[in-house]
Design a protein around this nucleic acid. Structure first.
Length: 631
RNA sequence: CGGGGCGUAGCGCAGUCUGGUAGCGCACCUGGUUCGGGACCAGGGGGUCGGAGGUUCGAAUCCUCUCGCCCCGACCA
């Protein structure tokens, strides 16, 4: 039992002006944290208590599948060179030198250290599988720390790594983590979603993120009631059928004069067609993605040429640059300049179309390009940014598949074409899903409308494959006595983000009830489960009753904070609310009838109960609140 | 790194344009009244105005440089 009169809980009536995000304001006002610098926070008593409760849950659940380690946060340069990430991490890694001048870094993650242990210790398939985890401080020199505890430069992460002999083993380790993660987040009282994540250009192995919907989040996710959930970077949807236009004339592409109708809205109005009957063109120059396996390169490499990447989509669709990057093998896209449009497509902005692009790269050439082979060049071109004359990568979105008689730019100022039918009138390098899903579209599995919203990522599980075990040379002997590279997975949970997400989630519920800037934490992670508020400590009976009840609750195993301060009741009620403790017992006037007041802040329900029955009532309220954990 | 904003008491702010030696609310300390929803009265403590340099008789205020923090974007295994 803790006495409020003797502990340090610096609550603030007003939030510092620097805090903008709800959870940030509340964490500061409630005295959970204080800021030391950009992306650096001190956890005070309450904050640390909440974090410790989260850590305890994570540990308890992780111990059911893995073994806890504790690795150094300070790492020598060598192991990061071995994996190729000393250079790859760039400015995001904190680097320093020791007194001898040896280079070190503060680890952003621990694939390297774990793999180095595996490399030197694991010898036989009989030792596999292994799941090793730790709960430890990570350092990342974020370009822009923000949103309180959401994006910081030093934070607690539970990171786990699995080593298996084969893919089937990895699948199992991955599934174990998925199961355990769901239990952890459920026990922490979060309303979360597991979503398909963009596994990036490398490898293409599976990856799943655990997200909590909140406006404070930085990711956009799409989900539906049928259980579909995906990061918008990757999400897709079913498309309702669109009625094609009837052919005109001989049914072949027909040039029409459309002066000043460069915008889709204008051309649609001009021709009385729907945007879905028009072909949109989005053109980029793309920086090639790095090759799949990185070496420990330290020399200067000549930058590979930019690639002309042109996407054609339905007029009412938006291009998704992540998907387009994946399709074109690029890492970054910038819009084409007018002379590049002319060069690679052959038309002016506003009148770009797929018909008549003379130099379309073939799928085969693109594959070759992505594996670092031959360049499929366009002859006789000289412009610095013209990608050394690379042929144009034309990507047709699947939303155009099977369509006919569409309207498209004619690659000629003030002209469009009608009767454009994909595959007959033009052939792209490839067809791919490169559009962004929209709110309300039917999801691809159950056809239920998609909800799109911001979310914060609280965990991520990832099938790493052989990237680290191979580059760092870990191997074991298999059943046949042959050297075999173990396959790895890595799995992370952001501990502070669980706290932040829980506050955001609760605050939005309170806001919906009309109570601004209020929240209550789930009992499992709240710094205290209950506050016993003695409304007036100068009344001996109230004080004595409060002491007794707090002692009884404490003896019964609850985390109790006794507010024995000599303050007015209003101040104490306000503070009890601010610190987000889910239950409050008020000892006041009704004690004359032997009664006290139990407030469940999660349900906003108040009950008068007999003082002598406080323990049983709180126990009942707590179990009623405890989320059921399904296995 | 590009764009924007802000640094004055623990927190929120005014004062800066037009230079004259710093103020308000909350918090804090003392005394009194009050006591179930951030009390009231009286008295009090606390600030080299982010830092450095310059202009001036005189700088929170003008000029130069610099540091820090926040927001948008870029970035974010």
């Amino acid at each position: 039992m803790h006495r409020w009169s003797q502990i340090f809980i610096p609550t603030l009536r007003e939030a510092p002006a620097d805090a903008e995000v709800t959870s940030h304001k509340l964490l500061l006002r409630a005295g959970y944290v204080r800021q030391l610098g950009a992306g650096l926070y001190s956890h005070l008593f309450l904050g640390n208590r909440a974090i410790n409760k989260i850590v305890a849950i994570v540990r308890e659940e992780m111990d059911t599948i893995g073994q806890e380690f504790h690795l150094p946060a300070l790492n020598p340069r060598e192991i990061w060179e071995a994996s190729g990430r000393w250079a790859g991490m760039g400015d995001n890694m904190f680097r320093l030198k020791d007194r001898k001048g040896a280079e070190l870094c503060l680890a952003m993650t621990h694939e390297e250290v774990m793999t180095s242990i595996a490399r030197s210790e694991l010898r036989s398939y009989k030792q596999l599988p292994q799941i090793w985890y730790q709960i430890q401080t990570k350092f990342r020199d974020e370009p822009r720390p923000k949103s309180g505890l959401l994006r910081v430069r030093q934070f607690l992460m539970k990171d786990a790594y699995s080593f298996d002999i084969d893919e089937a083993g990895l699948d199992e380790s991955y599934a174990k983590h998925d199961r355990v993660y769901r239990r952890i987040f459920t026990r922490c009282g979060l309303n979360f979603l597991a979503v398909d994540a963009d596994s990036g250009a490398m490898g293409g192995s599976a990856s799943q993120e655990y997200m909590v919907y909140t406006d404070a989040g930085e990711d956009l996710i799409a989900s539906s009631s049928s259980g579909y959930a995906a990061n918008v970077e990757k999400a897709t949807s079913k498309l309702a059928a669109v009625e094609d236009l009837a052919a005109t004339g001989d049914g072949l592409p027909e040039l029409i004069v459309t002066p000043g109708k460069g915008a889709i809205a204008d051309i649609c109005e001009f021709l009385s067609i729907l945007p879905s009957q028009d072909i949109k063109c989005v053109a980029f120059m793309g920086t090639p993605a790095p090759p799949p396996v990185q070496g420990g390169t330290s020399g200067v490499i000549q930058a590979p040429p930019l690639r002309p990447v042109v996407a054609f989509l339905r007029g009412d669709h938006q291009v998704n640059e992540n998907k387009l990057n994946a399709a074109a093998g690029t890492a970054e896209l910038r819009p084409m300049a007018p002379d590049e449009l002319e060069l690679h497509i052959g038309g002016p902005a506003g009148y770009l179309g797929p018909v008549g692009i003379s130099e379309v790269m073939t799928q085969g050439s693109l594959n070759g390009l992505n594996s670092g082979k031959s360049l499929d060049k366009l002859k006789g071109v000289s412009r610095e940014n013209a990608a050394e004359g690379l042929k144009t990568i034309v990507v047709m979105d699947l939303g155009l598949e099977g369509r006919s008689n569409l309207v498209a730019g004619a690659n000629k100022l003030d002209y469009h074409l009608r009767n454009v039918t994909p595959m007959r009138d033009f052939k792209p390098t490839m067809m791919a899903d490169v559009r962004t899903v929209n709110e309300g579209e039917p999801d691809p599995i159950g056809g239920e409308p998609l909800r799109i919203g911001k979310a914060v990522e609280i965990g991520h599980i990832f099938k790493l494959g052989y990237k680290y075990s191979k580059s760092m040379g870990a191997s074991v002997l298999n059943r046949d006595g042959k050297e075999t590279t173990p396959i790895m997975g890595s799995y992370g949970i952001g501990v502070e983000r669980i706290l932040t997400a829980a506050i955001e989630q609760s605050a939005s519920l309170f806001a919906a009830r009309g109570q601004a800037d209020m929240y209550a934490l789930p009992p499992s992670i709240a710094p205290f489960q209950v506050v016993v508020t003695i409304t007036n400590v100068r009344e001996a009976q109230l004080l004595a009753a409060g002491e007794t009840i707090a002692k009884d609750l404490s003896a019964a195993g609850f985390d109790v904070l006794l507010d024995d301060r000599d303050e007015r009741a209003g101040v104490k009620f306000k503070d009890a609310e601010l610190i987000g403790v889910p239950f409050r017992i008020a000892i006041g006037k009704k004690l004359a009838e032997g009664k006290i007041e139990l407030l469940n802040r999660l349900t906003n329900q108040t009950d008068d109960i007999y003082a002598a029955e406080a323990v049983q009532h709180l126990r009942a309220a707590l179990t009623g609140q405890q989320a059921t954990i399904a296995d």
